[in-house]
Structure formats: structure tokens, C-alpha cells
Design a protein around this nucleic acid. Structure first.
Lengths: 121, 121
DNA sequence: GTTTTTTAACTAATTTTTTAGTTTTTATTT
DNA sequence: AAATAAAAACTAAAAAATTAGTTAAAAAAC
């Protein structure tokens, strides 16, 4: 899986949130300072080259949409961090935050339930 | 917290693993193709500017060591991914992988124990 | 139908990151 | 002490990423 650069990732997040959009729509959803039309257009072109984005043409207008789901890229990005910092182990990642007492009791309880639901008896 | 670029992160991983080292020691620990001395030296200089690395001088030689622990940067990097892809929630991250059946039964059991140990009765 | 506006494609410029070369300083060897 | 070697500092170059400008084509307004 190709990596997204920072600027590319930001555009993808907008596309994932919006589902689809013309360049001007994407700009409208970006925080200040909003980039120039041409800047976003360039990034979109690269994203199409990389296979992350597709488009429907309406005359000269292009409506862009994600070809890779947020879930797919989430998995990639998370596994990458997990590999670099936790030997690829989810348990080590969770231990890290639990040991830090970064997680509230309520959250811990929820977490128990999440796991129990998926455990085979 | 300043972000590490890819090359910077690789050097930091070597320093975290080794604890400390001269440039030539760091190069020795890097996989093929090993970068030039001057390349590593430049990256180290930038890491010192950014406050990630310090050094002890022995004459003209510098022995470098991390100023930021792997744990500190781990937390930053993981929270960054968690924020971008899981609304900042560890539970949503765990759910994601558990729902995917990416985690073996043995690991799930371990995970239960980790959480139980940290739960207040 | 011509003018104006909008859009994307193409190109260029800037900035950041990465890699490498040269010079200077210090240490080591003879 | 002079020659050689090793290291860091400094500088430069190349590559990648980001931002922006120009042009050409299509659509909309008049």
C-alpha cells in the first residue's frame, strides 16, 4: 500500500467524510487558511495517479470520490505504528495505555465487553 | 511535539535500540544499503536542532543519545493515528481489530487479563 | 454567437527532506 | 614535528512534497 503524505491525507479525510465532491466542495470543507484551487487540484491528480481517488465526469467538471475506504487505510496506518512501536502487537499497544492510566474505568469496562462479545466460549 | 520525518525516525529507532552511539555505530546498525557517513551526520544534526538528540563529546568525537524516549514518541505517534482514524478513542481502535477477527483467542484472553489487572474493584 | 466564467490540465516555483561533497579540526601514526 | 587518518561542521546538490500560476477547453451568461 502506497503511503499518503500529509497534504494528501488531509484531502482523503475530507473525501471520506463527504463521500464525494468537486474540488470547490473539498476546499469549502478545509479549515483556514484554505488552499488555492490549483493546489487541491494538483493533490487530487496525484491521488488519482496513486489509485486512491476516482472521478465521475460531468462535462468538464469532475466529481471525485475515494477508491480506498477509510477503514482500509486505517488498518494500514495503525499496523504501521503498531509495528514500529509495539512489535506489531495490539496487546502491547493496549497495555501501554492501560498501564499509563490513560483510560477511564468506564472505558475499561466497555473494553471488557467488546472483548467478551468476540470471545468464543 | 515536533514530528519526525521518515529518515529521522529511522535514526531515532537505532538510537533507542542502541541507547547511544557514534555515527559509525549507528550506520553499522542500519540495513543495506547503508547511508553515507555524511548523510547520517546531517540527520543527527537536525535531530539535535529539534531537541530529540544530545551528545557527549570525547575530543572531536560525539557520542549521541536520545533526549526523547521511545515511549514518549510512541504515545505521540499512536495518539495521532487514534485521533485521525478512531476519533481519539482507544476502544474504537481495539474494536476495529477485534471485529476484524485479526486477534487470536489466546491474545484476546491475555488482553482480558491486562485489563482486569488494571481495573479497580 | 460572442463574451465571461468556471474548471481541469499543464507547468513552474517554492519549500522540505534526503543525500552527498568539501573543508576544517583534532587525533593518531610514523 | 610532519604526514596521515578520522570526525564533525559546513556547504551544496538532488529528490520529494507542496503551493501556485498559466493555458486551454467547456459551460454559462448575455
Amino acid at each position: 500500500m502506497k503511503e499518503l503524505t500529509k497534504a494528501e491525507e488531509e484531502i482523503m479525510h475530507v473525501l471520506w467524510e463527504a463521500g464525494k465532491g468537486f474540488v470547490k466542495d473539498l476546499i469549502a470543507r478545509l479549515p483556514e487558511p484554505q488552499p488555492k484551487y490549483t493546489t487541491v487540484s494538483t493533490i487530487i491528480r496525484i491521488l488519482e495517479e496513486k489509485g486512491f481517488v476516482g472521478h465521475n465526469a460531468y462535462g468538464n467538471s469532475h466529481e471525485y470520490y475515494p477508491l480506498i475506504t477509510k477503514e482500509t487505510y486505517s488498518e494500514h496506518a495503525t499496523k504501521s505504528v503498531m509495528k514500529k512501536y509495539f512489535g506489531g502487537s495490539l496487546n502491547r499497544l493496549v497495555s501501554f495505555f492501560v498501564d499509563k492510566n490513560d483510560i477511564s474505568d468506564k472505558e475499561l469496562e466497555e473494553l471488557q465487553k467488546i472483548i467478551q462479545k468476540n470471545q468464543n466460549p
